[in-house]
Amino acid sequence: MKRFDYHVPQSIEEALNLFKSLGDAIYIAGGTDVMVNIKRKKISPKNLISLRNITALKVIEKGKELKIGSCVTHEQLLKDKYIEKYYTALHDAVRKLGSKQIRNVATIGGNICNAAPSADTACPLLVFDTKVLIRNEKGERKIPLHDFFLGPYSVSKDEGEIVTGFEITFLPPYSGSAYIKHSRREAMDLAIVSVATRLTLSPEVDIDFLKREAGEKTYSEFESRLLSYGITVKEARIAMGVVAPRPLRAKEAEDYLCGKRLTDEAIREASEIASSVAKPRDTLRGEAWYRREMVKVLTRRAILLSAKRAFD
C-alpha cells in the first residue's frame, strides 16, 4: 500500500487550512471507500485529512429543517427514530446498506461524495429535495443535491471544499416515502437498480377514517382500498439509482403524477414514464433491459408503499 500521512483536524477550519498547506491531499470520513480505492491503487494521495473527529459534522439537527452532518454514520441514521418516522426512505436505504461493520463507520457524506451510481442514500435524499452544504475558505455555499452529482464518482465540489452536511426541508403532513433496493443478496450487496419515491397527498376524504382503515386492516387490504379513495397527489418525487451515470430524478413521471388522483392506472403510467426516462447500461451487475423493467416494478411498489406510509 502506498504510503501517506494522516491528519486528524478537530475543526472544519483546521481541516481547510491543512488542505491548503498540504497540497496533495484528500479528505477521508469513514474511509470505507477511500481506503478501498487506495488499496486498489485507484488513488494514491500523499495526505489524508480525516473529518471524523470534527464534532460539528456528526450531529443530526431537527429544527425548522432537518440537518444531517456529513460525518453522521449510517448506523446513527438507522437508529434515529425521527428519520425512521418522517424520512422513511432514508431509513430503508441505510437498513440495507453494506453491513453492520460498514454502517458503523461509513458516513452519509462519504456515500454522497463518492457518488457511485448505486449510492444507497442518494435516491432518498433526492426525493427529499436535499441541499448540500459546502464549506470553503470563503464561507458556506448550498446547492441542490440534484446538481451536486455530475457523473459517476464525480461531484460539483472543489477538492479542498468540505461537505459539511445536508439540509432537508420539513415535509408537509400526509407525506410518505420509500426506498426499494433490488439486489441479489439480502446483505452486503450493491443495488442492481433502486428507486426512492416520496408522495405528499392531499386527501379529500375523512383522514381519521383512512387512518382507522390503515390500523385495522392488513396492508394488502388497505392497499387495495387506498387506490379507490380518490386521493389527490399534491407532490411527487421519484429518484432512481444505477440507471444513469448519476442518481436520477424521474421528473416527467413526477409531473405526470402531480395533481392526479392516486389510482392503479396513474401509478402504472408514472412507473412506465420513469422506466422510459431511465438509461441503464448492461454491466456485470445487471442487464439494461432488466434494469428498465425493474424501474417499472419498483417505482410502482415504492409509490404504493409511500402512499400507505403517508397515513402512518
Partner: peptide
Amino acid sequence: CGYGECGACTVVIDKMAVNSCLFPVMEVN
C-alpha cells in the same frame, strides 16, 4: 479480503464492530 467485504478482520472499537482492514491505525488514537 482486505476490502471490508468479508468481516474476518472484525474488531470492536468503542463497543462497535469495525472492519480493521479498512480502519486507519491513526483513528484508534
